[in-house]
């Protein structure tokens, strides 16, 4: 019911209410990112709920006219990062640093046919995305699925532009290599 309160219904809606409606319209995007970050439905739901709690509480700090979805992503990113930082252990975080360094020196030299990606199955794509280290998965997701600008991604992830560029580049490269390998492995390893 709340979600149906639209801008154009001609009724007076308080700024808070309008903000709520506008913010809630992004629930699928937030859930999608949360799911990609956590790879766990229950945790993703917690993350989204916590994001809305904080967003609604900080509603007055949102500057109207700026990109609401990117602002919500920033909150979600921070909640997630704080949890990860303080978790007893965070093996994936460590792994991603290692991969980041390793990938810096890695330039794949195979030249697979272009058809490959067109023939990728959704499930394989999901699997490959989930296999990416967090920071690369998030950068690629924000860019290619959510279509945020580089500067917005930098603000969401709180990193400089150069890092955004390299994370997107390496994330896509890794994804490409994974999909290529997945296909080459089809019928052999699976």
């Amino acid at each position: 019911m709340v979600l149906r309160l639209g801008r154009r219904e001609g009724r007076r809606v308080s700024p808070d209410e309008q903000f709520r409606v506008d913010a809630l319209a992004h629930v699928n995007s937030l859930y999608g990112l949360a799911l990609r970050l956590t790879r766990n439905r229950a945790t993703a739901e917690d993350l989204v709920q916590e994001t809305y709690l904080r967003a609604f509480q900080a509603a007055s700090r949102f500057e109207p006219g700026t990109h609401l979805k990117a602002w919500l992503f920033t909150i979600l990113h921070n909640v997630h990062r704080n949890l990860r930082r303080s978790a007893a252990r965070s093996p994936v975080e460590v792994a991603s640093d290692v991969v980041e360094r390793a990938e810096a020196t890695h330039m794949a030299d195979e030249d697979p046919e272009r058809q490959l990606l067109r023939e990728t199955l959704d499930t394989d794509l999901q699997e490959a995305l989930d296999a990416l280290p967090d920071v690369f998965r998030q950068a690629v997701w924000l860019r290619d699925v959510e279509e945020l600008a580089y500067a917005e991604i930098g603000r969401v992830m709180d990193v400089p532009m150069g890092t955004v560029m390299s994370r997107i580049a390496r994330g896509r490269r890794m994804l490409y290599d994974l999909l290529t390998r997945q296909r080459e492995g089809d019928g052999v390893t699976r």
Partner: peptide, 16 residues
């Protein structure tokens, strides 16, 4: 990669 992800974005982003 970009083309693939954009093409599948709607399906990747599952509904809350």
């Amino acid at each position: 990669c970009r083309a693939l992800l954009r093409d599948r974005a709607a399906r990747l982003r599952c509904a809350a």
